[in-house]
Amino acid sequence: MLELKGIFKTFFPNTPNEVRALRGVDLRITPGSWVNIIGTNGSGKSTLLNATAGTFPLDQGEIILDGNRITRWPEHRRAKLIGRVFQDPFSGTAPSMTIAENLALAARRGQARGLGFALRTGWRNDLRDRVAAMGLGLEDKIEKPMDTLSGGQRQSITLLMAGLVRPSLLLLDEHTAALDPKSADKIIELTGKFIAENQLTTIMVTHSMQQAANFGDRIIMMHQGSICHDISGLQKSRVRASDLIAKFDEVRRSDQLDESVADMLRSNYV
């Protein structure tokens, strides 16, 4: 269970560059559920994930994960509970280390043992099995360095790394956005399978309305640092990509309602 209560975050406060990135976000995510976050550029989606992962301190608010009040925990401490995959396939892994070594590093997260322990034969076979289970034929490459893999292959390894120790929470930030359409489809399918098998509580940021509609069991739409739509249950199962696009149009229309329009409406409406 993840609980975000009254989260506020302003970057560069009291300067001309002030950005009120999060303006009072409340969100409760039940264990094992998969929430998709959509919203226009700059609406605060990544900032919300970063706030949860502990990239920066909050201005206000409380974060509770599986009963732990993690609000003041540093990022590395939260990393034991939280797995992350970013948009950039080149982030989050050590490029010159082998796939096996990268996976071992991830497995070791939160444990004080050396790398050697993780790379013992038993582990190795286990890792090979897990990589093979993804069905990408990467099991024969686990001794190759990460930087010999394609973007899609890397994202699948990063995903595997993020889920290796079965985190309390998996955060995916546009993790298929930098991939070609075919690889993106492959990775999102893999993501779905992976989340279901491990029953991971997941937040996925995506700009693909198709992904948002077809995967997960809840959709949150963000706008100007707050949640403007929350679609779940039956409503979520019925939602089509076109409905979500219509919601974007609605937001765009509402943004055009500025002071001058409001003044006109004050005298012309009602």
Partner: peptide
């Protein structure tokens, strides 16, 4: 009341796009 017509409050209850 009057404040209902202030931005952004008005966006919550009234939809209008100048197009």
């Amino acid at each position: 009341g009057e404040s209902a017509f202030s931005v952004p409050r008005i966006r919550d209850w009234l939809s209008y796009c100048p197009e």
